[in-house]
């Protein structure tokens, strides 16, 4: 038998509210979500806004970039880096961050908080 999963997309914001090659923070269902528009790669990523290192609501204000082929975000506080696609920590021992699917339609950005 086939399992049907429904992705529940949440309307997050308009494309024009986002920032090219950078992040913004969103409040979605009382959670803080960081949304990144990696224009150079034409990719969108959403992750938790909290940096696991010192539990700071800050990742949306970090710098994005690449490590080899991997897209990443660097926390502004102590520059720990996390993979934007998988959420794994790329610098040392911190925990991974949560990542969420993103889609863009008709100038609106949607994020799926849970599958």
């Amino acid at each position: 038998m086939e399992t049907l999963t429904t992705t529940s997309w949440k309307l997050a914001c308009r494309v024009e509210d986002t920032i090219e090659n950078g992040g913004v923070c969103l409040k979605l269902e009382d959670q803080q979500v960081a949304l990144f528009y990696f224009k150079r790669r034409n990719e969108w990523y959403a992750t938790q806004n909290e940096c696991p290192h010192k539990k700071q609501m800050i990742l949306s204000r970090g710098m994005i970039g690449s490590l080899g082929d991997k897209p990443k975000i660097a926390c502004p506080f102590h520059k720990k880096t996390f993979a934007l696609d998988t959420g794994e920590c790329l610098s040392g021992d911190e925990c991974a961050i949560k990542t969420y699917p993103v889609k863009v339609e008709d100038g609106f950005v949607y994020i799926a908080l849970q599958n």
């Binding site: 150079r40 970090g62 710098m63 970039g65 690449s66 660097a74």
Partner: peptide, 9 residues
């Protein structure tokens, strides 16, 4: 590539 927290600043 696409830059990083070292070369950007």
């Amino acid at each position: 590539g696409h830059g990083c927290e070292v070369c950007k600043p």
